[in-house]
Design a protein around this nucleic acid. Structure first.
Lengths: 339, 339
DNA sequence: TTGTACGCGTTATCAC
DNA sequence: GTGATAACGCGTACAA
């Protein structure tokens, strides 16, 4: 089924190394032998065994991607960016899901760290960020395996990082709402231990402070991470009928909130405006369509892959310098606000 | 950084094979030596190199997943199902995207078929189904690499397959609309060369015929695959103001169509009903929420992974028998139809 | 021009 | 109880 150099050598009654060289068109081998070998190899569809090459080169040409979730649009686009770029440079992508669990994150990394991959691209699970335990990352980097963190990062690990300026994104969005005359702007977020939620909350507060509106803490709703416990949103709106604009840290909260508002007879954006994060299908096809802070996931994936592969292929001699690349968020204006 | 058996052997001044056995708690080795070796291994965090083991065992414990697209919800859930199941059995998942391109599909498979994986799980790209060229699949199966096809399959390849009964799904959906008194039911589909679109179209027609309503071909709109060329939909509705219900082969077409209807002042479901395929975020959070034929992607992924791994780990001796597993679709009733 | 020998890291068999 | 050897598939420095 699977033909090897040895098979060819036996069949053609030459040595293995002759076959190897012939297939590489080496000058050392006679035209005659080369033709014979190459023809035979082609006929039997010989392809070198990747595993053997990996063992020899100590390079697998695989990169490990560990993310909390694959169903959400943002991570999906990041994977796409990684895959495209990595493939173009001859790398395969092994995807592991932590499902927001610390233990799974650890297990996945250990599974891959034993030679299966040349480096990691990852975004931390919420549980990991909550615990603040990054020993599994430390072990990996100490083994000399390059790591690139994106989106959900930590400062406790020295490695390359790619993020968008979440604080700026929230700031821009909030400012936009203020410009349009909104004065009672709510924030629907998740727990602060998520690095991104924290940054977004800061941007929101900063915009309110800078504009002189001031922060009303009661207008900030924090929901348990990604549990999509949307019940909380309904109660929140009951208690805050005065709210005239809402910033949400993801598109699901935003679209769900819009529906609640509409069911209460409110007009969007006349009575109340909405802005979310993540420029996915939901935002685009919601009714009304949702204005969002675009996170440029695909670009983020590409850059992460590039940083990782550059490091993997770089000279080991170079002294280690770690970069944090920050992408600019973009406001995508749609019908959930005035324009 | 990365410690090997050889390193331990050198350091402890024993042979490599002694170390290997000691770490496996072999009875042949003295308690003394075992303790020494195990302590040392633990201290330096020894882990066997997966690549070397793969080379020896001719088993990589990796499975290759080749899909047309990762952004769409259905494929995303399938991956999740595969990943969960595969991980539980100690396998990693290498994801490759064909982006609906025949060439990319071929390249990806060749890349993985040279020893990187133990088997494939895949769904065909639209271009592949259009061309009807399955030689890359034939080559792989002839090499003895197990393949499981899911969702977008072909009968030209002998391998395990997992699908949902698309015809039945469309039939159930159409029948539901008929039961509710709808008489002018449109279908928005993609080109027939996609196996799933074809099956769904058949189910739609069958339901109309069985009920005596009859098929009006002009009420069937076929859009170029996945191009999301939604312009076509607008024109279609202009030309068919009589339509009182619409079945769409995906949730994007359905949600987009609902918006067009609403913009024309139609009430859903009073004036017009909608049913889509794929039970994703869009359907759930659309306004009104969309009734869909659920495809059970996660289950499909699990089953695919199970079939593949069973085959991979099965005795080579067994005579080959290939199964096609058909899952039952489910109608998820939401506000876009009466209930 | 061709072939031998070694190494990548591991395991299994066989010899001491 | 321990160790030497071969093998997985490949590439390459060196020898013939």
């Amino acid at each position: 089924m699977k033909i090897t150099l040895k098979d060819i050598a036996r069949e053609l009654e030459v040595s293995i190394s002759t076959v190897s060289k012939a297939l590489k068109n080496s000058e050392e081998i006679s035209r005659d032998t080369k033709e014979k070998v190459q023809a035979f190899a082609k006929l039997y569809n010989y392809k070198p065994n990747n595993i053997a090459i990996s063992l020899k080169n100590k390079r697998t040409k695989n990169i490990g991607v560990v993310i909390p979730d694959i169903v959400h649009h943002f991570f999906t686009t990041v994977i796409r960016g990684i895959e495209k770029y990595a493939n173009a440079r001859g790398y395969n992508v092994i995807v592991c899901l932590s499902e927001e669990s610390f233990d799974k994150e650890v297990i996945n990394m250990e599974m891959l760290a034993n030679g299966s991959i040349d480096g990691f691209i990852m975004s931390l699970s919420s549980e990991t960020q909550q615990k603040g335990d990054y020993n599994h990352l430390k072990e990996v980097t100490e083994q000399g395996i390059p790591v690139v963190l994106f989106d959900r990062i930590t400062n406790e690990i020295d490695c390359d990082k790619v993020i968008i300026d979440d604080e700026l994104g929230a700031y821009m969005a909030t400012q936009k709402l203020i410009e349009q005359g909104r004065k009672k702007i709510a924030l629907i977020s998740t727990d602060d231990y998520l690095s991104v939620s924290k940054a977004r909350t800061m941007g929101y507060k900063k915009a309110l402070t800078d504009s002189g509106l001031g922060v009303d803490e009661s207008r900030i709703l924090k929901l348990p991470t990604m549990e999509m416990d949307e019940m909380g949103i309904k109660d929140f709106f009951e208690e805050h009928p005065e709210v005239d604009a809402v910033l949400c840290v993801n598109e699901i909260f935003a679209v769900y909130s819009m529906r609640l508002a509409q069911e209460k007879g409110l007009k969007i954006p006349e009575d109340i405006s909405f802005i979310g994060f993540t420029d996915g299908f939901l935002s685009k096809y919601a009714y009304p369509s949702l204005t969002v802070v675009a996170q440029h996931g695909e670009k983020m994936g590409e850059i992460s892959a590039q940083m990782l592969i550059d490091k993997v292929e770089g000279e080991k001699g170079e002294e280690e310098t770690f970069l944090t690349k920050t992408l600019e968020p973009t406001l995508v204006i749609r019908d959930s606000i005035f324009h």
